[in-house]
Simulated scan of single mutants.
Amino acid sequence: MKTRSLALLFVLGLVVIAGGLLLPQWMSYLFTIAMGKGLVVLGLVLLMRAGLVSFGQGLYYCVGAYVAGMLTQFVGVTDILVIMLASVAVSVAIAAIIGLLLCRYREIFFAMFSMAFSMILYGLLVRNQFLGSTDGFNVANPSLLGWTPGAEASSDLVLIVAVCLVIVLGAVAWRYLKSLSGYAGEAVRENEIRLEYLGGSVFRVVYVKYIIAAALAAIGGTITALVSGHVDPEMAYWTTSGEFVFIALMGGTAHVAAPIVAAVLFEALRTYAFAVSPYTWQMILGFALLAIILFMPSGLWSLVERFQNKKARKTS
């Protein structure tokens, strides 16, 4: 069963890559952006399954993007794999320090403190003239193992890397959630005292999840920076982090594929809403989220679960 699932995942990845390359350039761009944001939301889902909601994932999303931009513009490093590793390393180092304080808090305190750190970064970037202040700066086209594609081919390169990362990291996240450490997160959400009584460390469980979420956010920010060719402080603003929470609520937390699917639908919905009503498109998104909360409180993935349950009842 596991072998068949992995084979199906591999075939699906090839189909997605082929479809992305055949799509018009603007659709391929939106799809790549959705893959990056989906990874950020995947990390957020790990925290939400432990009962924590972070309004500060924009911090690591922005750090990953700015590391990519600074490496390409100021250091001359354009290899996409090196950039990814550097972005993750910097974000994990920052998360390891901030997490020592942040992971001691719960509920609204965790959410607000996480947003506070993100807004601190936003304020520092806005006042930094060297990094372009509010305008940000451009990011050079990436390369791969010495191969430097053209302007159009570089976006295809980022798309392929993004889809591969989504598949690999999604599979790893699924295995993690099915492990003892993954289930410990649900124990934190339900009863921290009982987990401590059984010998588990609540702080360690939350701390590890926070660092994993930071790494995923950094990868998502790097993908966004490389495909868009630009970074700016808005990536650390609280509305960006709120957007990630929006997508997480939209997809639900029942499966690792939910945030990826929700991110794609979110980008499609926002593009359509902006085309139809450029001055009130936020209202359309608000009504969409309100409808999901009212009719599908567990997110869009609950539709898949209903279909699976219905199929199982017919089989039995």
Rank of each mutant, 00 (worst) to 15 (best):
V208Q: 13
Y60A: 08
L102T: 15
F307A: 15
L226S: 10
G220D: 10
E305N: 04
P297V: 05
D135G: 00
C62F: 07
M27Y: 11
F274S: 07
L303A: 11
E186W: 00
A218M: 06
E192S: 14
L23H: 04
Q73E: 05
L125V: 14
S298Q: 05
S201Q: 13
S54M: 10
G51V: 06
W281S: 08
G123Q: 11
E267P: 02
D232M: 08
R194P: 03
L121S: 10
R270N: 07
I219T: 05
I292R: 01
G185L: 11
S241C: 06
T280S: 15
L145N: 11
K310N: 13
S5A: 14
F203R: 02
G286S: 13
A236V: 14
L30A: 02
F287H: 09
L124V: 10
F109P: 00
L6C: 07
L102R: 04
R104C: 09
H255E: 08
I98L: 14
W301T: 03
V166Y: 06
S5T: 13
V172R: 13
L102F: 08
I94E: 02
L290N: 03
S5N: 12
V90N: 00
L249N: 01
V82E: 08
T148F: 02
N141S: 05
V261P: 01
H230F: 03
E234P: 00
L125H: 14
F295I: 01
G43M: 09
L169M: 05
D79H: 04
T240N: 02
Y66G: 03
A184E: 03
S179L: 04
A184I: 01
G99V: 09
S154W: 10
A65L: 10
R194L: 07
A275M: 08
V168W: 09
A275R: 13
L30C: 02
L180T: 02
T222N: 12
K314M: 02
Q25K: 08
M70G: 06
R189C: 07
A89F: 12
I108G: 03
T224Y: 15
S179N: 05
E305R: 08
R49N: 15
L195E: 09
A68L: 10
I94P: 07
F10E: 06
S302A: 14
Y207T: 11
Y237T: 02
L289K: 07
V15G: 08
L145H: 10
P297C: 08
G56D: 03
L300Q: 01
I193S: 15
S155K: 15
Y210C: 13
E186K: 08
W26R: 14
L30Q: 14
V161D: 00
V168T: 09
Y29D: 05
F130Q: 06
E107W: 06
L8H: 04
A96V: 07
K311R: 07
G132T: 05
G150A: 05
F137P: 01
A275F: 13
G99H: 10
V15D: 03
F130P: 00
G69W: 10
W301D: 06
Y176W: 07
R4Q: 04
E190W: 03
V92R: 05
L303E: 01
I108S: 11
A96L: 12
A96N: 05
N138A: 11
A217F: 09
E196V: 03
S179R: 07
R104I: 04
S179Y: 03
I247W: 00
Q129E: 09
L52V: 04
V15K: 04
V205T: 15
F113D: 00
L177A: 06
